[in-house]
Amino acid sequence: MTSSTEIQKKFPLPSAWEEDLEQALAMVWNQLETGHSARPDLEKVVDAEIRAGMLTDLQQRGFLHYHDDLVIFSAEGKRLAQSIVRRHRLAERLLQDVLTVAEDQIDSNACRLEHVISPGVEEAICTLLGHPEACPHGAVIPRGPCCERSLTEAKPIVFPLTGLKNGDHGRIAYVSPGNRPELHKFISMGLVPGADMRVTQTFPALVIEIGDMLLAMDGELARHIFVRKSAPPTEH
């Protein structure tokens, strides 16, 4: 058995400085994304949230460039920021869609999770969620290498019900977002994670067979039901 100190040595948790750095970079990313790039504004936000002089620190370490009074990322800064923002937003999706964590708990948890998600896990989460394009608040999730690959190579493991073709079998992985008003009806009709279903037609509306029941729905709902494709059950 490995002791906890050994684990810490082998897989160190991010230091406080690293967390601050990631936090600050994410903040800058958010500001730039919403069109705020004036240096005084950014300074106000970042320095207030992290510590005084943080923005200048980022600039001196080469993560940012000042261009007159505007702030832009350096290549290295952009790479790091993109990565942390991606992890944060993926974590939000995971918490909301799969773990159905209450809304007011999502942000605080995502903020902690983002720092400990390794690249491998990040990719796994992204694949599980079907390479989502936006976080629950609608902000764009930066694409990762796995997203690019998914477009050309293998299909994601879990994808929206709309991705299934006529006659395909599937098992429901999760329903997103977890607080849809239809959700209670879904559950009381057995449309829950783990349920096996078959698509019997996709046009003019999607019709699925679940147990002996036929359910019709339009793409609007089907987009929120995520499934894992499965082989048809063997005849008995």
């Binding site: 239809e182 009806k185 009709m189 509306a205 019709v207 029941m213 036929l214 359910l215 019709a216 729905m217 339009d218 609007e220 709902l221």
Partner: peptide, 9 residues
């Protein structure tokens, strides 16, 4: 509101 309907036999 989205369309969701159980289809009877």
């Amino acid at each position: 509101s989205p369309f969701f309907l159980e289809i009877p036999p």
